[in-house]
Structure formats: structure tokens, C-alpha cells
Write a protein that binds this DNA or RNA. Structure first.
Lengths: 224, 224
DNA sequence: CCTGACCTGACACGCACCTGAAAAGCTCCA
DNA sequence: TGGAGCTTTTCAGGTGCGTGTCAGGTCAGG
């Protein structure tokens, strides 16, 4: 799927772009409304991530314009805390969902999945980890039909590991995914969450690579 | 369900809006054709209540325009006694039903229900939630043959959850389904209604996902 | 056997959520 | 018109879960 990211904050944009790319999607990142309009005319996107407050005007104009043109591209608004009124207006203009900054990347994954599914009727995919069936977008894990509940942070860690499948993820990468916005952490939080996940999911699911990071092994990816 | 009310009579509009809201539906009330067009482009409605005689032109234009655009939104025409010819033309333009002013609100309820039911894809399907049998279109819930009564808002919340089945619905999504544009709510209304539904339907029916939203578990969908 | 990296049980705090009850608003009917 | 009987909304107090932190234990490698 192809995503258009409209965001002028370089740091956030970079993080989001990297994350979305790591999910296997093509990402075009633009920082102005001007460029966004050009891109929209040139390419059909599966999803747009839109920051409303841009240096060259309000993203609402763009959104209204799109909907006026019968462009039904799913849109997720990225909004700062103090711009809640914008988001209401945004939804009224035809946006599909919104995320309040700062958000964590796992939640972005979930909302993207939800919006995409709502539109495209894409059957939800699931991953097999041994006897586990994991549906990240549904926030659901089954072991032999039995539900396993994870908390928000636990999901965020698992999402990060799953996004890289079979590749090694360093502790600092996980921290960045959890606290992307400056909220530095100075304890062994990641270790704790890995431990909690292992307790719930089984000891073998997450492998430790001393001095390097962690790795998760996905057996298979299927769709219902 | 979300209703668009197009009516320039302030007193009647007020009454209708209040009544429809009391049935648990979200109502957007506009008084001009201009605004109606804007709303229709921004939002998908389950039903439109349309007064044909408006200050800025005939509602028939709007109706014809909609049907020309393949917009199949159900429409009930609200017509004054001396505009019977309008109503005939309205039906020919693709309206679904009409009400002659002054009408009583009970009749409005009935006709709205009839129209909505006519449009519901599968006639009288029901959903199984544990020991519950739920018929949303009939506004009916049975537990072992025993009727359970829900109020308007309770139905609205339940409808929203059922519409997404097994998927997660955020608190704000529920609020948006319940309240019309701008009617921001600043209390824990959604929590209260979830609590009431659990009291009536059973504690396990609605699952809480902390910081994310709610989810309902539908075992099965059947038709009588 | 020592060192550093990692694991994990326990705990305190805060926040999200729950819920009973009171206040406000509605509809309907006499 | 007014009041009975709902439903809806608000509020406040309580509860429990999630989170981050730490300390002591375990393990691998040199």
C-alpha cells in the first residue's frame, strides 16, 4: 500500500516515515500543502497521514478540496494536543480518524490498519508464532482459541519486534518506538516488557542476542 | 444512525431534532440547501428528513442532484398540507416516503423505522452474543425468550459497537456516532452507557481495552 | 571465578475506568 | 399547562490496571 505523509516536523516525519516503511508500505513524504496537492494529482494513495498545521496554510483546505473532488482517499489527521477543535472540523470535512501528538508508532500501525480495512475490505492478516496466532491490527492474540490480553505498552513492544520480523531489533530501537518524542527513559523498561511478553506468550517467542538486541521468529503470515 | 434534518422552520426543526436525538440518533440540522449539500459531501447519513420549501430554493433540486450522483441515502420528505403536488414529484425524484405537516412525532418514528428497515441489507438478521439474541433493526433483544428493553442512547452505543463487530471502537468514535457536529461532550457519558449496557446484557459482553476503546464479541450472525 | 548483561518479582503511583445517585431534560397525557 | 415517569447528562468517589523503577538473582563469556 502507498502512503502519503504530509508533515512539516522533520523529526516526527522522519520517525513516521521510517516506521511506515518498515511495515512494508511505500511512503511519499511532503512538507507543504503545495507538494501534497501535486502528489495527490499524480498518484493514487491508499492512505494519507495529514498534519493540519502547515507553514503554507491549513490542511483542512486540502481535505475539503479533495472531498469536493470526490477523492475518497482515507485520511488520518495528525494533531497536536491543543488543536482538538481542528480535529473535529477535520472529521466533519471527511477525515477518517485522528491521532493526537505525541502518539506512539504502535498506535499508528493499529489505526492505519483499521482505516485501511474499513475501506478496502482487506482481510485482516495474522502472523503465526509457534502455537500463537497474532492479529496486530485487531489487538488480538490467540493460543488454541484462547484469548491472551496485552496492555498498550506490551503491544507497542511486540509491534516493533513484529515489524522487523526475523531481524534483530536493538533495545534503543524499541525505546524509540515507545517514546519517540524526547521522553527519555533511564531504566531497564524494555527488558521488563520483554519479560512480561515472554511470560504471557511463552519463553521461546522472543530470542535475546546479548549486547545486540532481540529477535522474534515469525513462522508464517496468513490472511483469514 | 446518523440523520440529516433539512428544515428552515425553527420551531418544528427544534422539536424534530430533539425527538430524533431522543431515539438515540445523531442529528445534523441545517436550514439551507447550501448547508445540506456541504453536509452530504462530508458525511454519510443513514437518513435524510427534507423540507422541500426552503428559502434558497427547492429541495427537489437537491434530491435530483443526489440521485444523479448515485447517492442512495434514504429520504423522507416533510411537506405542508398545501404542497401535495410537491410530494408526488418528490417521490418521483427518488424520495422514500413523506410526512404531511403537522405530523406527530410517533408517526415520524414509525416511518423512519420503516424506511431504515427497508434499506437494511438483510431483512431481520439477528446476532448472537453469548445467550443473547439481538435484532438491531427490530430494536429487540432476547435472553432465553425474555425481552430486554434498551433506551435510545443505549441502542445507539450498542449499534456502534455492533457495526464494527469484533473490531475495536474508540470512545471518541462512539461519541461521534452519538452526537452531531460540534456537540462536544465533556463528561464520561460513554462510560456510563457502557456500564448500563453491561448491567442489562451481562458483564462479559463488552470488553474494555484500556486507553484504546471497547470491543464487543459477536458469536454469530443468522437470519430467521 | 569475575564481570557485565539480562531477567524478573515486587511495589508505588497515577490515571483510566466504573458506577450509584442526583440533577436536568424530555414526552406524553390528563 | 402541569406534572408523572421516563431518559439523558453530570458528578464524585472508588477501584483496579498499567506503568516505570528498583533490587536481587541468573546466566554467558572471558
Amino acid at each position: 500500500m502507498r502512503v502519503l505523509l504530509v508533515e512539516d516536523d522533520a523529526i516526527l516525519g522522519d520517525a513516521v516515515k521510517a516506521h511506515v516503511a518498515s511495515l512494508g508500505h511505500a511512503v511519499d513524504w511532503v512538507t507543504t500543502l503545495e507538494d501534497a496537492s501535486v502528489s495527490l494529482r499524480a498518484v493514487t494513495y491508499s492512505l494519507m497521514l495529514l498534519d493540519l498545521r502547515l507553514p503554507d496554510g491549513s490542511g483542512l483546505t486540502l481535505l475539503r478540496d479533495m472531498r469536493g473532488r470526490e477523492d475518497a482517499t482515507p485520511v488520518i489527521i495528525l494533531t497536536a494536543h491543543d488543536q482538538i477543535s481542528d480535529r473535529i472540523e477535520g472529521l466533519n470535512c471527511g477525515a477518517d480518524d485522528y491521532l493526537v501528538k505525541p502518539f506512539n508508532l504502535g498506535e499508528l500501525t493499529a489505526r492505519m490498519g483499521a482505516v485501511a480495512r474499513r475501506y478496502a475490505r482487506i482481510p485482516s492478516t495474522f502472523l503465526c508464532l509457534g502455537e500463537l496466532k497474532v492479529q496486530p491490527t485487531e489487538r488480538r492474540i490467540l493460543r488454541k482459541g484462547e484469548d491472551i490480553a496485552l496492555s498498550g505498552r506490551e503491544w507497542a513492544v511486540l509491534d516493533t519486534l513484529l515489524a522487523r520480523r526475523t531481524a534483530i531489533v536493538s533495545k534503543s530501537q524499541i525505546e524509540e518506538a515507545l517514546y519517540a518524542f524526547g521522553a527519555e527513559i533511564e531504566s531497564n523498561t524494555v527488558e521488563v516488557y520483554v519479560s512480561r511478553l515472554r511470560k504471557k506468550l511463552g519463553r521461546e517467542v522472543i530470542e535475546t542476542l546479548r549486547g545486540v538486541g532481540y529477535r522474534i521468529k515469525v513462522d508464517d503470515v496468513k490472511a483469514d
